[in-house]
């Protein structure tokens, strides 16, 4: 099954016949099996699926962190499979934002330094008005000079979200961003991400296994055995849970 989108929207990223195979011969594992998927701009997409379904691999490949065995991944108009490491790095730095489950921050840098890290790596200066708006959105104003070890887990993830937003990337990839947080901190983070989509028109792709997290998205794509098997628009947690049960997942 192919995930479809309304034709009026522009596409931030898409995978075309994307395959990722680990190993060869009889032991070959198809982590991604000729997937076609599109992530429209200003949409919040959640990727769900049981363990081993290939959801993290899909995220890594679309984000330019991993390469495909065959097929293509486009970020905007750029075919990532044709890029050198240097160009891929530049794409990640300037056009993509990341939020990981853990270890999102450089321990030796303060919160504000972590937020502006991609800009500093590019050797440019942050747009102060935009930076202020992000910092206020994630409510970190009074924590900016603290180092990660002095921040709570929730605060650390907020810093990570702010860092992902700071370059106004075309797309943000989030890999289980609330996996290590309690429900209150999780709700906060997911709320911020939702606001980023609604208020700033940010595109977000998030891998999760939690139906409540997925319910914050505009759309949920379900993966199993390296293939897209289902899709939900404007999901509720219960609807997601129902689909997941059907897939025999958690």
């Amino acid at each position: 099954m192919t995930a479809t989108i309304p034709p009026t929207k522009t596409i931030a990223a898409r995978a075309v016949q994307a395959s990722k195979i680990y190993g060869t011969g009889d032991t070959a594992v198809h982590a991604l099996d000729a997937i076609d998927v599109e992530f429209p701009s200003a949409e919040y997409t959640a990727i769900m699926g049981p363990s081993g379904s290939g959801k993290s691999t899909l995220l890594h490949c679309v984000a330019g962190l991993d390469s495909l065995t065959s097929g293509h991944v486009y970020l905007g108009d750029i075919d990532l499979s044709t890029l050198s490491d240097k160009d891929l790095t530049r794409v990640r730095r300037d056009r993509v934002g990341f939020v990981f489950q853990t270890f999102n921050l450089i321990p030796t840098l303060t919160a504000i330094e972590n937020i502006t890290l991609p800009i500093a790596l590019a050797g440019s200066k942050p747009d102060q008005a935009w930076l202020d708006r992000i910092v206020d959105t994630v409510r970190l104003r009074d924590r900016l000079s603290h180092r990660p070890s002095e921040l709570s887990g929730g605060q650390q993830q907020r810093v990570a979200v702010a860092r992902a937003l700071v370059t106004r990337p075309e797309i943000i990839f989030a890999d289980e961003p609330t996996g290590n947080l309690d429900s209150r901190a999780s709700a906060e983070i997911l709320g911020f991400m939702q606001r980023a989509v609604q208020e700033f028109g940010q595109t977000i792709v998030m891998v999760t296994h939690d139906p409540i997290s997925a319910s914050y998205a505009n759309r949920v794509v379900f993966l199993a055995d390296g293939r897209i098997v289902d899709e939900l628009r404007d999901p509720s947690a219960d609807a997601v849970l129902g689909k997941m049960r059907k897939l025999g997942g958690e």
């Binding site: 490491d85 240097k86 790095t89 530049r90 890290l117 991609p118 790596l121």
Partner: peptide, 11 residues
């Protein structure tokens, strides 16, 4: 992480 958020090999 540094590489993921855009640090080049040279950096």
């Amino acid at each position: 992480l540094l590489r993921a958020v855009g640090a080049s090999r040279r950096q």
